[in-house]
Design a protein around this nucleic acid. Structure first.
Lengths: 130, 130
DNA sequence: TATTGTTATACTCTATAACTATA
DNA sequence: TATAGTTATAGAGTATAACAATA
């Protein structure tokens, strides 16, 4: 229990540090990481667990830096799809690779331990859609 | 790796929800939880991984609600010790107990799985002091 | 000189409420 | 009527820089 708290703290401290190196806030880094494919603003709000009105500002700031862009959805003209630009894609690649190399603990595990870890997490994570 | 991200997201989502029920922000809840014993402002800044100037405001707001108080340190008159009030202690007890009951996953594990989990976490947590 | 805590400042995140344009 | 996104607003977190008091 305390270990879960520490693991969570470690993960976010690491994530925030990696993002900060690129002048990104935690939320900006999270949003970029979520955009594996184009997504409506609304979906981003759900995944980031924040109000839809906040997404406007975050996308604005990332857009001003050329990391994401909005595009109209032909099938529903209310919807705006958000997607990474080329530069955004590259930034996400860098973040992911640095996250990996900072948290090498899991990668250095044997097969058996890794499976035990995943089994345990699946019990603790009944309702996570991220 | 992705599982660690999900576990961290789950933990903080749960923590923030429990804190919000008591009209506390995530940082306010974190600070209360850290105050197992009186602590200088400076130590809180280190544990919360934020600038010392932020601690002033957070302690101010918690103090205005009667959950913490400052006290002079006789041995170094620059230092102010922050400690929980009686109401603060009770709030922390409630938060802890609700966190536990929400994340029952770990508690329901068998001995073997629990040990595997702790062994894994200890590999991922080389530098966590919280 | 260095450290502790505060203040001032500017920016970001946050929820709420009111608005528009679509559906 | 309901939904997607925006805007306005107020409160909270954030780092930086400058400051007073103390070491």
């Amino acid at each position: 229990m305390d270990q879960l708290a520490q693991a969570a703290a470690l993960y976010y401290r690491n994530f925030a540090a990696v993002a900060a190196e690129r002048d990104l806030t935690l939320m900006q880094g999270k949003m970029l990481s979520l955009l594996r494919r184009p997504m409506p603003m609304r979906a981003l709000a759900d995944l980031l667990a924040c109000d839809a009105s906040n997404v406007t500002g975050i996308v604005d700031r990332l857009g001003a830096r050329g990391l994401v862009r909005r595009e109209a959805d032909p099938s529903d003209r209310r919807v705006k799809m958000v997607m990474l630009t080329e530069e955004g894609e590259e930034t996400v690649r860098q973040i992911r690779s640095e996250l990996m190399s900072n948290l090498t603990g899991l990668e250095s595990l044997g097969e058996e331990d890794r499976h035990a870890f995943q089994r345990l997490l699946s019990q603790v994570l009944p309702a996570v859609s991220t």
